[in-house]
Design a protein around this nucleic acid. Structure first.
Lengths: 219, 219
DNA sequence: CTCCTTTTGTTGAAAATTCAACATATTTTA
DNA sequence: TAAAATATGTTGAATTTTCAACAAAAGGAG
């Protein structure tokens, strides 16, 4: 477990918990590490929402797939971030989303009951853990607000521009990479891929952006 | 404060806290009650995200208004529910949304620092409060998942049908009222109002639904 | 009850999206 | 390196949405 300590220390779930306590805690929480190759399913829709996931390496996507096979990308999880926590905390019985590995990924799975209900050892940091979980959920809610602000725009162009501006802002630079290829960006923005390609081309010709693959510059 | 006890007991924030403790707690939290007439602003976008709101009576809407004046209804809050908690908990400095009274409403405002940081009296229920807040935020996240599942559909018809099915499901009946007039429903589904009216008319003529104003029956 | 305001429904034209099909470019792998 | 697979760009037709303008219906105030 030692090898994961550095990344776990960056996980918001373990904020303000010192190294020694963290190690003891991990035993107590009974987390286990599982690896997934690219495109493999971490959690399938409909599965029991029993585990909270912490991404140790790689990246995973939270997606919904509708009746017709249309994919909707809800969010992208990066190393150190937590996922599926909302379903575990709200004690829903089955997952309404699928989690798939976007690249080879290592995931730590923790039985949510070990987090939500204080263990018999009563390690003093359980309260901090709950507090951290609350903070994490609050920031997830804000993340969804931002996503909705983008996708509620009515045209592909407006969605794209507000997505790129948001990314630029959070990168703190006019030049940045996005975590999506074209189809994925379309599935995140809730638009048609070919229409998205057209719009990117237009913005480039109008001198509003420069881009190459998933690298963008706002001019 | 006594007159609000019944509704506060139903608030998820005070789950598993007995009456006596609740009363003591309210003093400790320093909540104050404010009334708003219909259409009045409870919190304006850009305001400091200092307070957590508990709706005591009436109903409020969480909305975003873009540059062009287009309204987007993110959610509707009913009596007993909490709002603006995510922004306070995540300690963002200014609100990215507006909260307006949808009907005459009474709101209890609690300074979030009183909730997040244990008070000097150290009332024993602070931990339960944090735990409840975490649960509440988890269910808000799930609510947004559901909203996105609806609004990610590409046509007005599909959005409307999946919204109505969701409402029917949560009402546990094929017959139910929705909390929106036509314009509000359009702003929630992220579609054009007149196009929505057309679609409702079609579904009615096709014998798929019956409706009168905001009352719907799925056949 | 009547007038006034608000809400809902209707229409047609303009704009945008979706869809399918294919061309081109890039990446992977054998 | 060449072939195969995947990703991106392009096009035109069909569908759908948006927009503006107005008609009809419902609700509220005096």
């Amino acid at each position: 477990m030692k090898k994961y300590l550095e990344i776990l220390k960056k996980c918001p779930l373990f904020d303000k918990i010192d190294d020694e306590s963290l190690v003891r805690m991990l035993t107590c929480l009974g987390g286990r590490v599982v690896s997934f190759d690219k495109k493999y399913t971490v959690f399938a829709e409909g599965a029991r929402a029993k585990y909270i996931g912490i991404l140790l390496s790689g990246s995973v996507q939270i997606i919904q797939v509708d009746y017709y096979g249309n994919r909707n990308i809800l969010s992208v999880i990066r190393a150190g971030e937590v996922f599926a926590e909302a379903f575990a905390c709200a004690e829903v019985d089955s997952l309404p989303v699928t989690v798939i590995a976007d690249e080879p990924s290592e995931v730590m799975l923790i039985d949510s009951s070990h987090i939500l209900h204080t263990c018999s050892n009563n390690c003093g940091f359980h309260q901090q853990l709950i507090y951290n979980l609350m903070k994490d959920l609050a920031s997830k809610t804000i993340m969804f607000h931002q996503r909705i602000e983008i996708t509620s725009k009515r045209t592909t162009r407006e969605k794209l521009l507000s997505y790129l501006n948001m990314q630029s802002k959070s990168a703190g630079a006019r030049e940045f990479d996005i975590p999506f290829d074209r189809q994925e960006l379309a599935d995140y923005l809730e638009v048609d891929r070919s229409g998205l390609s057209v719009e990117i081309g237009k913005l480039r010709r109008e001198g509003i952006i420069e881009n190459r693959k998933n690298h963008f510059v706002i001019l």
